[in-house]
Design a protein around this nucleic acid. Structure first.
Length: 569
DNA sequence: GCCGTTTTCGGCCCGACTGTTTTCAGTCG
């Protein structure tokens, strides 16, 4: 993906410029552009050629994007790369070491990679430098150890669990009035690198003092009167900020971010002679805030409606809010069905009846049973005869269940050759046909794309599930021309799935945005293999919200009959 | 390097915590 490559280069340029002590705002421009490209699924060069303006990409950066797109490299970057040793870019990522110290170590001690820095810290050679003593040396060694153990990102679902445990315990701490999850967990990022929790209490320092005793706390990283950073037993960082209840809303805005959204919000306030910080919105020279208690009040103070956390990424939500065009985002309550459910018939762990009861208890009106097809042996894929017997069972169950309907479906493999794993005579009997790639991930982009497009063109295929095939933290999605997938889905009236399994979350928010723009229908399915996983629907809804989707964009917000009708037209 | 109902030049969000310091630089989010 070209955008990703340019984003990486801009990121590296920002690091190098920072180490060189360049203008911080120039650095920020590269970082912002890098982030923007990262979140733009369309080819940025093509957008620029088409005359589209990308916020934060001015004349110079646009030229660089075009240059890279044309030639596959960037002259300025190639020059810059040789200006500093590559190892400095690793050093600057060590927690506790920033650009200033990286430069200091290199200039004074010739340290050019992490190994050399580690050696120097061990031998106490760093403390000869101005502003460095034993504590800093220790912190640097800890930071290096953290990097080594791969302080990676954690799945959103895991972060939710940890956050829930901590909040449960916080509710028992004397003086705590209220707590809320903030940061990227609240924004429903698919993976996060830490957990942020905001607490309201009349006397913040008293609460902070109690927090080192939390069961989740294995180690204190930093502690002040209003903020504590700790590490859980699994090495996961948690930031807890305690504020008085009067400024809970302002603190929640600040602590939820994203950083880019906050910057935009504060810039907007500043242009109006206001200042926004975590304590409120302030008019110049005034001590009493104009707004602070609720998020709504903070946004209102700069004439904006409240913006849902999932949209706070500086991806156009400020402009939409100002124009009164914010979407009415889908909520979990809008969902009437789970469109992707497995059972014991293939690799699920429970009966169809158990899955139906679990979903009905969660407020669903229908579900699609989608067990695997025959070629997926590892998942005990169903032969046509098995499938027909399963359909008999479903028909029996439908007679027994009240106010709930089970639709007969199958997760049919798109074989490496691009064919479907069941004959048309079998597919015709199903209510819903889900198509999926489970093999041949390494095929070249053209072949994989064509293979999927071919499946989408099949008259019986209703939904393409986990469309990009990514597994978070394990494997990137396969090589796909997503725009071709979208246009094929649009042309053939095939829906794309937002797979809500915690490791997939596939499509992601950016893809959803594109799908909506392209007029492609979407569904959210949990891919549940047992009843507990039915709860993952909420993760899928979070992704849909990040993509700006409304209930009308998601087919399983419709009653069953309308769902079936829409699926086919 | 970007950007414009103060500006095409001169701004560019804001504060907490740490370690090393007697008032602040560096880092982080």
């Amino acid at each position: 993906m070209v955008n990703k490559e340019i984003a990486d280069i801009f990121h590296a340029i920002a690091d190098i410029l920072e180490i060189q002590g360049e203008n911080a705002f120039r650095v920020r421009a590269y970082r912002r552009a890098s982030q923007l490209l990262e979140n733009t699924p369309e080819n940025a060069a093509e957008l620029l050629v088409a005359g589209k303006h990308l916020p934060g990409i001015g004349h110079d950066l646009a030229q660089k994007i075009l240059e890279f797109s044309r030639t596959g490299s960037l002259g300025d970057y190639e020059k810059l790369k040789h200006a500093v040793p590559a190892g400095l870019l690793d050093i600057v990522r060590i927690p506790g070491v920033g650009p200033k110290r990286t430069k200091l170590f290199y200039d004074k001690l010739g340290i050019a990679d992490i190994a050399a820095l580690e050696q120097a810290a061990h031998n106490h050679r760093l403390r000869a430098l101005a502003g460095i003593k034993d504590k800093t040396e220790e912190h640097i060694l800890e930071g290096i150890a953290l990097i080594r153990q791969g302080s990676g990102r954690i799945l959103l679902a895991e972060a939710d669990e940890i956050a829930a445990e901590i909040r449960q315990e916080l509710s028992l701490v004397p003086g705590v009035r209220e707590s809320a999850v903030a940061g990227s967990v609240r924004r429903r990022r698919e993976t996060v690198h830490d957990i942020d929790i905001l607490v309201a209490a009349a006397r913040p320092p008293a609460v902070i003092d109690a927090l080192p005793r939390l069961r989740a706390c294995a180690e204190i990283i930093a502690q002040g009167p209003t903020k504590i950073s700790l590490r859980t037993h699994r090495g996961f960082p948690v930031d807890i900020r305690v504020v008085v209840p009067e400024c809970f809303g302002a603190a929640l805005v600040y602590f939820t971010g994203s950083p880019a959204h906050n910057v935009r919000l504060r810039e907007l306030a500043k242009r109006r002679g206001l200042k926004i910080n975590e304590y409120g919105v302030f008019a110049e020279g005034r001590e009493q805030p104009l707004a602070a208690a609720s998020e709504e009040a903070v946004y209102q103070a700069v004439d904006l409606p409240w913006i849902a956390p999932e949209l706070r990424e500086d991806q156009g939500e400020m402009e939409q809010a100002a124009a009164g065009n914010l979407p009415r985002l889908i909520t979990a309550a809008d969902i009437r069905a789970d469109t992707h459910v497995h059972s014991q018939w293939s690799d699920g762990r429970q009966s169809i009846r158990a899955m139906a009861q679990a979903l009905q208890a969660r407020g669903c009106e229908y579900m699609v049973i989608a067990d695997h097809s025959q070629s997926l042996g590892i998942a005990r894929g169903l032969k046509p005869d098995d499938l027909r017997r399963q359909m008999d069972e479903i028909r029996q169950l439908n007679k027994q269940l009240k106010n709930f309907r089970i639709l007969c479906g199958a997760e049919v493999d798109i074989t490496a050759g691009g064919n479907l794993d069941f004959e048309d005579t079998v597919l015709r009997e199903l209510d819903v046909v889900l198509a999926a790639v489970h093999s041949g991930f390494r095929q070249p982009q053209e072949q994989l794309t064509q293979r999927i497009v071919h499946a989408l063109e099949h008259p019986y295929v209703d939904i393409l599930v986990h469309p990009t095939g990514r597994l978070l933290g394990e494997r990137a999605g396969y090589a796909l021309d997503f725009e071709r997938i979208l246009s094929a889905a649009r042309r053939t009236h095939t829906a794309l799935e937002i797979n809500a399994s915690p490791k997939r979350l596939d499509l992601d928010g950016a893809h959803c945005r594109l799908a909506k723009q392209a007029g492609v229908k979407l569904v959210i399915g949990t891919d549940s293999h047992d009843t507990a996983q039915c709860a993952h629907m909420e993760l899928g809804v979070g992704i849909a919200r990040r993509g700006g989707l409304e209930a009308a964009d998601v087919l399983n917000c419709l009653p069953c009959e309308q769902f079936l009708q829409k699926l086919r037209t």
